[in-house]
Structure formats: structure tokens, C-alpha cells
Amino acid sequence: MKPLLEIADLGVAFRTSSSLIHAVVDVSLTVSAGERVGVIGESGSGKSVMARAIMRLDDPRRTQYATSSRITLDGRQILALPEREVHRLRGDAVSMIFQNPMHSLNPAFTVGQQMDAVLKAHRKLPGRDRRARIVDALGAVDLPAPGDLVDRYPHELSGGQRQRVMVAQAILCEPSLIIADEPTSALDVTAQDTVLDVLERLSRDKAIAVLMITHDMGVVARFCETVNVMYGGRLVETGPVGDIFAAPRHPYTAALLAATPNPAAPARTLHPIPGTQTTRRGSASTACAFIARCPHATTLCKQAPALRQIRANHRVACHYAEELDLKAAG
């Protein structure tokens, strides 16, 4: 089956006055229809840049895509499309949910006015039908009294409610893909739970694929079927969530898991990853991105490892993927 979204060899760099910053290097991943895929990594790993590239949201005057990059959505070459056509896809075939619901809604307009503008941009419907559809969408994300909510202003809603409004707005035009860029990071635990529940149910019921960008292993564990681990702008490990959580094969993935609290084993000591991720200026480095912080690094690691298959659907970019005893390291 052809995947819904296929990202191949994506490279994204930003021009600054003095240099070129390589935010994403050679990333390839696929999302099938209705699939829930996670992208995890710490701040600066390039995960959000990759997400924005799918919708081509970055300023074209300072963003440079590597020539070999391809992003194929439903057969359309996103990076080759004229801006007008990409614009038509935004909010229609693909929609996006952002991190901070407190700032994602326009304070000067009611929930209904904002959602109506989205619907109007993509569908020719009479006003009454649009309103009915908006109320339906608000109901679908479990918001109480959706008929009243339409006429409320954002400041009258809680953070969790606002994020559910964002989800409702995202599903208005029945997209085939929702890109969720850290949708729960700014919410308290209860609100996180509700938003993830709603997203998961919508994904199942309406066969909407979700690309979940997060730094939280807990979100990946409960929400995603497949996970892509990014570090330093590169993909370091990808595979089914169950496999990777049970047996991570990249030292970074293992380190991330060791740094994540596990409610099942509260007594376990957490291990932070030493050092910090570095920005890649000038030409892309040829060494493994994790070399500086990896406890297992050798001279061989000065040559970047390719992403290679070690099991069905499980790929790792580490020279020692088969040999390392990573559970012990975790």
C-alpha cells in the first residue's frame, strides 16, 4: 500500500546573515493512512522544522530545502508545488495543532468566527450549514454545550478546552493528516489526557493519520504505533513503538528512555543525558550527531552511520546497533 505521507531525504537549512544552519539532515519517514506516528527528540532536534516543512510554513526567503528532498502527500510533491496549491492543502487535506493553546486562538474573535473562516476558505457552504458543522466538530472533541461555545471568546475557555477547540478546527475539513506539534506540552496532566483521548478516537473513527511531534516518551507510548527518534536534525532510530520501548538499539533512544519517569517503576533512578545538543552551522558534519554525548562512541563514529534495517520495520543509525547492551546502559 502506498503511504499517505512520504518524506524522503529531507534536508532543511536556514540562512542567517553569516551562515547556514542545518536544522534537518537526510530525514526519511512514512505515515500510512490512519496511522499514528510519533516523532520524538529534544529541543533543537529538528522535529518541529520537519513538521513545518510538510506544510511549507517557513519563510521561503530564508529556508532552503536540500535538492534531493521530497515530501509526497497523497501523490502530490509538496516541495515542488506552487505556493497557491500548498495553501489550498493547509487546513484541508492536512491540518496542524500547535503547542500553546493559550496563544493559538485569536483573542479578538469568537471560536465560531475563527472556525468559520477556516471552513469558508475551503468549502462552499451556506452559513447555516457551516455553523452546524462547527457545532458538530466541537461536539466531536467532547466539549460541553458546543452550541454556546461557538459564540465564546478564547479568554473564556481553559487551556484544555482551547486545545480541544484547536483539534475541532483541525478536523473541520476532514483532513487525511493532522500534524500535532507538541499539542500537550503546555497542558496539565488531566487536560493532556483528554486531548490525547480525543485525538486517538478521532484518528480511529475517521481514519485520520496523526504525526505526533513530542519530547515526551509517555505521549509516544500511549498514543503512537510507530516512532521516529530524531537527534541533531537526523533520524537515529525508527520502528514500532513496542519494539523500540522493549529493546532500543540506538544509544540516544536508550538514554531518552532512561531519562523518562516510569510510573510502573517509580523507584528507578532517572539518568539525564550529559552535555547538550550542538547547532550545525556551515556544512553538515560527517560524524555521528550523537558522538559528543554517546558513552559508546569510538573513532568509527567519526563517520556518520547510515540508517539501516536491523529487523522488520526497525531501522537504526548506529554502527554498533547489534552489539551494544543498551538496557544495561539505560
Partner: peptide, 19 residues
């Protein structure tokens, strides 16, 4: 919220002159 409006496919002039 302006980035959101762009990501939801609103026309540039709607974003500028209304939102």
C-alpha cells in the same frame, strides 16, 4: 494565532485585514 491561521489555509488578505 497568525501562524495558526496560515497553517489552516486562510488567505493572506483575510489574515491581514481581518484577523
Amino acid at each position: 494565532y497568525i501562524t495558526v491561521s496560515r497553517a489552516m489555509g486562510l488567505a493572506s488578505r483575510t489574515i491581514l485585514f481581518r484577523f
